[in-house]
Design a protein around this nucleic acid. Structure first.
Lengths: 235, 235
DNA sequence: GGTATTCGTGTCTAAATAACACTTATTTAT
DNA sequence: ATAAATAAGTGTTATTTAGACACGAATACC
């Protein structure tokens, strides 16, 4: 026996919801699809999974293709598999959301794919069920970021507290009190203050911080309530 | 153009991680696989996705096959897709975790599949990567249950506070203070006390409670911290 | 030197959490 | 009938955490 003979086989794609933060707004990287069907329509970056790679590897490959980056923070989100979602042929899509530092990605690659960053309030109509994917990714982003320090993945290695606060304010579409915000953030012990200051964005200058890699790893799954000592939970 | 001609197609299965609570322990429903490869080995309940159904529909169908139940609480967990995970032929598995009330399920069906409930500490070696799936499901269960009132899905319609507490203690392998636990639980407003008492498990008897369906729906996505008013988050 | 801008910090109040022990209802045994 | 055993139910206090709130410091520009 070498095949489950009677069963049907389907195509499997990977689609990536790529978030970035330019210092002002949270943005989404979209491409203009280069092939039929729906050629030239806006779409998430994606591709078919290849015979010898797993879904994670496919997602990494696709992210690298578009951004030139490796080791990007990335997480499997959800599988979309309604039979008619792709009108040509049944295709399953495994979605990943990814966070990149917009300053690091290679612009020339994005030209090749006709990629553009979109403000989340101006996301155009996308092919297939991609708008639904984006919406789910936004929700998941908000959910996770409320509990875990993932938004640092959107920032450069050195960042200032006002920058992170702007990012949180963007994600939650709200205004935060900077005294309470910085106190909470610093109390996690995640941040190491640098001597250098960022003079770009203010006259006084704001201290740069870096993440403490050990504590970052440890605390990645922390926070929470309901259970007194919830040790060892993970997403 | 009717096919993405050059791409390879793969089999897609759905596997269910089914949890139940017998009043004492949290348990897992496993079957003895009825076909090759790995016939007669312990396995999660699963099946191939059919041409005209989506993944959710497939999971519902499979759950119904084994338990006789419909409308079971169920959630997509993760896709496992390493190329070699099934030695016969590449097969993607979309996993769902599900919670059932053990008292409701139909035993004769489980005989047909040679199903048995296993204590989570005695899970046998399973086929392929199913042990990994179980482990991930346990983690996700602990994660979600710390934030959202999902464990009620494991209980019958009427339940007592000592019962829920035992369930939480089981899930987190810890001992909770009953005064603090019941205060926190009751403060959610989720529970409606019945006049009737459960006399099975104690001499004094414990009041039965039911969920308030409206509040249950509203509060399903509540809790959380980090962001002052995290309104409208979802899993 | 004055003004405008943004950074950085401290206090007080309210709410939530965690630790802790006794009384009540009922059954069973003496 | 009385006593003993068992599990249910409830209240207080101390500590911690969260949220509201305002001013001084550094610097660039005029």
């Amino acid at each position: 026996m070498t095949r489950y003979s009677k069963q049907t086989r389907v195509l499997v794609a990977v689609d990536c919801i790529i978030f970035g933060f330019d210092g002002e707004h949270l943005k989404l990287l979209l491409i203009q699809r280069g092939f039929e069907p729906e050629k030239n329509k806006w779409s998430l970056m994606g591709g078919f999974i290849e015979p010898h790679e797993g879904p994670e590897a496919a997602a990494s490959r696709i992210l690298k293709q578009l951004t030139g980056l490796e080791g990007v923070y990335m997480e499997q989100m959800h599988v979309f598999g309604e039979p008619k979602r792709d009108p040509i042929e049944r295709t399953l899509s495994i979605t990943y959301f990814a966070f990149i530092d917009v300053h690091k990605y290679e612009k020339q690659l994005s030209e090749e794919y006709h990629a553009e960053w979109f403000h989340l309030k101006d996301v155009p109509k996308l092919i297939f069920d991609h708008n639904e994917m984006v919406e789910m990714a936004r929700e998941k982003l908000r959910y996770k970021a409320a509990l875990h320090p993932i938004l640092f993945e959107l920032l450069p290695e050195k960042f200032t507290i006002p920058q992170i606060q702007t990012l949180y304010e963007n994600v939650y579409d709200t205004v935060l009190d900077k005294r309470n915000f910085s106190r909470k953030l610093l109390s996690t012990g995640l941040l190491i203050r640098q001597d250098e200051k960022d003079k770009e964005n203010s006259k006084k200058g704001a201290y740069f911080y870096k993440l403490d890699p050990g504590i970052y790893k440890d605390k990645f799954q922390s926070f929470l309530n309901f259970i007194p000592n919830p040790q060892a939970l993970s997403a």
